Simulated assay, not measured.
Amino acid sequence: MDLRDLLGTELPIIQAPMAGAQNHLLAAAVCEAGGLGSIPAGMLDAPALEAELSAIEGLTERPYNVNFFCHQTPTADPAHIAAWHQMLAPLFAEFGIDPGTIPSGPTRQPFDAAMATVLERHRPALVSFHFGLPTPELLQRVRATGAKIASSATTLEEGLWLQEHGVDAVIAQGLEAGGHRGIFLGEELTTQLGTFALLPQLVAALDVPVIAAGGIADAQGVAAAQVLGAAGVQLGTAYLLCPESRTNALHRAALKSPRARHTALTTLFTGRPARGIVNRIMRELGPLPADVPDFPLAGNAIGALRAKTEALDLDHCTPLWAGQNVSGCRETPAAELTRELASGWRD
Rank of each mutant, 00 (worst) to 15 (best):
G323R: 00
L314H: 10
D315P: 15
D313A: 12
S327C: 12
A311D: 12
E331I: 07
P319E: 12
V326C: 15
D315W: 07
A311H: 11
G299Y: 09
D315G: 14
L305I: 06
T309V: 03
G323Q: 02
G303A: 02
I302Q: 02
H316L: 15
G323M: 06
T318I: 11
A301M: 01
G299C: 03
I302K: 08
E331F: 06
T318D: 11
D313P: 11
G303F: 05
D315A: 09
W321G: 00
D313C: 12
T318P: 15
T309I: 05
L314D: 12
A322W: 00
S327E: 14
W321H: 03
G328E: 02
T318V: 12
N300S: 11
A307D: 13
L320Q: 10
N300K: 04
A301N: 01
P319N: 15
Q324H: 03
A307C: 09
L320K: 01
W321C: 02
Q324D: 01
D315F: 14
A311K: 14
T318H: 09
T309F: 01
L305M: 11
R306Q: 04
E310M: 11
I302G: 05
R306I: 04
L312S: 10
P319V: 05
N300M: 07
N300W: 00
L320H: 02
D315T: 08
L320D: 08
K308F: 10
